[in-house]
Each structure stands twice: as structure tokens, then as C-alpha cells.
């Protein structure tokens, strides 16, 4: 009897929290399907009187001569390039730090760890000045190139944590077979890192896809805008209040994130917890 009551109480609490977690998301979805007139008159309702797709077609057209097709293509391109860069360079660097010995190794490792906690505000201004001098403003280089240079320190750290769990005997065996570090990396360590690389790829995807600050300061040509910037245009004054299309495009922008989450949930949970527990 007592067990039943406690179980019921548990589920009741979980349901209430779930409602708070999901309501805003479902509300956005519902609003995107409501006729414009209904969005704020029956604001709280999660059920449109009838499904109206016109918000999606209106929103897709975008602003002036640039539509969301372009914004999505831009975002996908940047994300793809960052993914490639991260997957090429992060495990490469992580292998060097976790398996090889070299002078200043500990000092540089401390630098890596500290750079993970460094507020971006401290470096962003000189970075901007640097990229400006290189003529990289209004190009994707400032958003992409850093990924090829080790990517985020967090990714290097995450992969290092994983490499630590790979038995060193495998390296030794390969070494006896005459493999140098390059072959040990490409034929032993890199393939074994596959699970953590999935995690890294997912996070690289999320952070790039959602990034707002980078595109905000480096891109000021509408044709180059990403989805994040495109969405923020809806609320700027000169466009007027186009809430329906804004909700519709918001939903579309969240779709890739949610789809990836649906398929790779396990890897995400691992990524979130791995960095903290084995530290």
C-alpha cells in the first residue's frame, strides 16, 4: 500500500516537471501551426483550431531576396566543415597528449585545461581584429578554421579520457610489429576511439548549429547568414511582427538537433558525464 502511494507520488512529481519541460517546446510547435490570428488570442492552447501550414511557407521565403533555404544551406555547410575539422584534429592532438612523451608536456596540458575554462570574451576582440586584418570578416573562415586547429579543448580532453581506457598493451603490440606512432594512431587508436568520436561529433554539431555569437560578429552579409541569425531577424523592428513564420522557422531550426538526439541519445549522455567523472 505504502509502496503504491510512493510510486504514485513519484510519477505525479515527474509528470508535473515533464509538463514544465515540454510545454514551451510543444507550445512553439502548436503556435507554428496556428493561423496568425489565433497565436495570441488562444495563447496557452496547444491545439490549433485547424492545422495551418502557411506559416511555414511564409517563413521559408525569408527576408528580401534571401530565404531560409539559403540560411539552412549555410548552416549545414559550416557545421559540416567544422565536423570534419574537429574529427581530423581533436583525436590527433589527444593521442599526442595521452600517449607520447615530449618536453613541456605537463605545462602544455595545463594550458589545454585552463583554456577550457577561459571566458571567450577575453580573446574575442583580438581574434576579431586578427581576422579582420586577414580579410576574413564576411567569410566562414573565422567560424571554421579554429576547428582544424585542435577544435575545442573540451573535445581534446574528452578523447584523452577515452584513450586512457584503451590498454597500452595494444600500442606495445603494434610497436613490436614495427609500427611507429603514426601507424599506431591510424590503425589502432583512431578506430578504437569511434564511440567517443560519435559523442564529439554530436557536440560539435550542436555547438556549431546553435552558435549565435560567432556568426553575429563575423557575418554581415545576408547571403552568408546562418539559421540562428536568420531567426533573430524576425524580431528586428523593420520586419514587423511576423510571429507565425518565426515560430515555424524556429521549429525547423530545432528539428536537426532533436533528430540527432533521438538517434544518438546514449552518446550524448556519455559525453555530458564523461568529462566530469573521470577528471
Amino acid at each position: 500500500m505504502w509502496r503504491h502511494a510512493s510510486r504514485a507520488a513519484f510519477h505525479a512529481v515527474m509528470w508535473v516537471i515533464s509538463a514544465f519541460m515540454l510545454y514551451p517546446i510543444l507550445w512553439t510547435l502548436a503556435s507554428s501551426l496556428k493561423p496568425e490570428s489565433e497565436i495570441f488570442t488562444h495563447a496557452a492552447s496547444l491545439i490549433p483550431s485547424h492545422i495551418d501550414w502557411s506559416n511555414y511557407t511564409k517563413g521559408w521565403i525569408g527576408f528580401g531576396d534571401v530565404g531560409f533555404a539559403r540560411f539552412f544551406a549555410n548552416s549545414f555547410f559550416i557545421t559540416f566543415m567544422v565536423l570534419i575539422g574537429t574529427l581530423l584534429s581533436s583525436p590527433w592532438v589527444a593521442y599526442g597528449f595521452s600517449r607520447l612523451r615530449f618536453p613541456l608536456r605537463n605545462t602544455l596540458f595545463v594550458c589545454l585545461m585552463v583554456s577550457m575554462m577561459l571566458p571567450a570574451q577575453v580573446t574575442v576582440i583580438p581574434q576579431y581584429i586578427l581576422f579582420r586584418h586577414l580579410g576574413w570578416v564576411n567569410t566562414y573562415y573565422p567560424l571554421i578554421v579554429p576547428a582544424y586547429l585542435g577544435g575545442s579543448a573540451f573535445f581534446v580532453f574528452l578523447i584523452m579520457q577515452f584513450i586512457r581506457t584503451i590498454p597500452r598493451e595494444l600500442d606495445e603490440a603494434a610497436k613490436i610489429d614495427g609500427c611507429g606512432p603514426y601507424r599506431i594512431y591510424t590503425q589502432v587508436i583512431f578506430p578504437l576511439c569511434a564511440p567517443v568520436l560519435v559523442t564529439v561529433a554530436i557536440f560539435a554539431f550542436y555547438w556549431t548549429w546553435d552558435d549565435f555569437f560567432g556568426p553575429l560578429i563575423y557575418l554581415n552579409n545576408t547571403h552568408l547568414y546562418t539559421v540562428s541569425i536568420g531567426l533573430s531577424l524576425f524580431s528586428s523592428a523593420d520586419v514587423g511582427t511576423n510571429w507565425g513564420p518565426m515560430f515555424a522557422m524556429s521549429v525547423l531550426s530545432l528539428l536537426p538537433v532533436l533528430i540527432v538526439f533521438l538517434f544518438f541519445q546514449r552518446y550524448i549522455v556519455e559525453g555530458v558525464t564523461m568529462g566530469s567523472l573521470k577528471a
Binding site: 584534429s89 590527433w92 592532438v93 593521442y95 599526442g96 597528449f97 607520447l100 612523451r101 615530449f102 608536456r105 602544455l108 594550458c111 589545454l112 583554456s115 577561459l118 577575453v122 580573446t123 574575442v124 576582440i125 583580438p126 581574434q127 586578427l130 579554429p146 582544424y148 586547429l149 585542435g150 579543448a153 581534446v156 611507429g180 606512432p181 603514426y182 594512431y185
Partner: peptide
């Protein structure tokens, strides 16, 4: 030299995008 060839990308990025800017 081999070890540094592995950490070189990060080191370059660290110098250009972190230490230098700081």
C-alpha cells in the same frame, strides 16, 4: 618531433587564438 607533430595543430591554435589574443 613526432610527438610535437601530433600536438602541433592545437599548439598553433593555442598560440594564434588564445595566448596571442590574450
Amino acid at each position: 618531433a613526432i610527438a610535437y607533430s601530433f600536438i602541433a595543430p592545437w599548439l598553433l591554435g593555442f598560440l594564434c587564438f588564445t595566448i596571442g589574443p590574450m
